[in-house]
Design a protein around this nucleic acid. Structure first.
Lengths: 216, 216
DNA sequence: GTCTGAGGCAAACGATCGTTTGAATCGTAC
DNA sequence: GTACGATTCAAACGATCGTTTGCCTCAGAC
């Protein structure tokens, strides 16, 4: 029910593939299912993309740059304030998590929610088709690493690696299955309100990051 | 290279299925691959289990009771000390996370590591075959909920639901791909040392749980 | 008009999937 | 030895998979 009903064949395939890959995974999705939902011919996917694997790659290439550019842009803004105004831990967390959580809960664009669901799925699975996606997100995390380190200078690098990994795990499961927290909390937690989820996660992670370094 | 080379056909199928389901997922695993790795005939899986879905269920039924019984047993121990000695937050976290993390890194039993990898994968994916597994782990989390609530009495139920969900996300990604943190940290974090991972996660989560409740 | 190339189409390719069949093989009780 | 239930086996079933083929349509160049 989008305003544009005259999408190109390529985009219709991408939309359908995005939804089905996110819901059923790579192996659980058939090209006949994709082309059936897209309303196009089966051979069109090979004509426009070449193969199923290439289609999968095209699905995530379409959006991955946008979300990570937004995260890095927010980080750049924080660092551009100069060394006399170092960003707070909460600000770095906001830049790291905010774009991801907000895009995964956009009510006006179901495509982004599905894409983020796909990202969360790939982040949790060691599948072979998903390595390039994981690498891109890992590079963003690596860019954030020194900013986090400056915001919590009492941590050793090793401690920060652990805690950043814990944080990524929380973020991944949030976007991989946004409805789950709402179901488990019997509706107390509203997963369709990204700002509330973000507020809770930032407070939780900030105190976690500020925890003392393990002694032993 | 196990000491027992004389395993039954049923167990050989379960071992091979556990490894392949954990690595490639349900749809990415073929029964021919399972029986090939197990060294048994293809029809044996239908003779002993009935179907591929039933085999998948048998794989996780074999171990799921053990790990969750251990977690609940630890919780019972803590609560048996009586209301005058309430368990600390760190103790509840230890009971909740310890058995899972330790089993997922056992050096003497690769089967447990693979099983935990499968659990982590299912915990992150909304696949249809994995609902019973997720429900079992969710019931355990529900049992832990009041213990957590007593350990951090300043939290509203809603806050605890959020933070418990964040914690489960961290735990799931840890066991779904144990090697990832070691790779990303360039070897600084040793994922084959469950006690160290547990120590870091308990400290991180404890401070996160103790964070104040969001104001707005 | 004719030619051209991009794109859409039905149909089929060989491979692999989960599942089923029916006979061969085994140990064991009689 | 014989009968019998339990297990294993090779072979095939129909369905579905990703991929390819060849032909059709059609808008723009000349």
């Amino acid at each position: 029910m989008t305003t544009q009903t005259a999408k190109s064949t390529k985009d219709r395939i991408l939309d359908a593939a995005e939804a089905l890959f996110a819901e059923h995974g790579y192996d659980g999705t058939s090209l006949r299912g994709v082309t059936g939902q897209a309303g196009v011919n089966l051979a069109a996917v090979h004509y426009h993309f070449g193969s199923k694997a290439a289609l999968f790659e095209a699905v995530f290439r379409r959006r991955v740059e946008d979300v990570n550019a937004e995260r890095l842009s927010k980080l750049d803004e924080l660092e551009a304030r100069g060394p006399e105004h170092p960003p707070s831990l909460e600000e770095v967390l906001e830049a790291f998590l905010g774009p991801v959580l907000r895009l995964s809960a956009r009510r006006d664009d179901e495509g982004w929610r599905r894409f983020m669901q796909l990202v969360g799925r790939c982040n949790s699975v060691s599948g072979e088709h998903m390595e390039p996606l994981r690498q891109v997100f890992q590079q963003v995390a690596a860019r954030f690493f020194p900013a986090f380190l400056r915001a919590v200078p009492h941590l050793r690098e090793k401690d920060l690696y652990y805690r950043l990994h814990f944080l990524i795990g929380s973020m991944s499961t949030l976007i991989a299955d946004p409805l789950r927290i709402q179901i488990h909390s019997e509706g107390l937690c509203r997963s369709d309100d990204p700002d509330e989820v973000l507020r809770h996660l930032v407070i939780y992670a900030a105190e976690g990051f500020r925890a003392p370094t393990p002694v032993r």
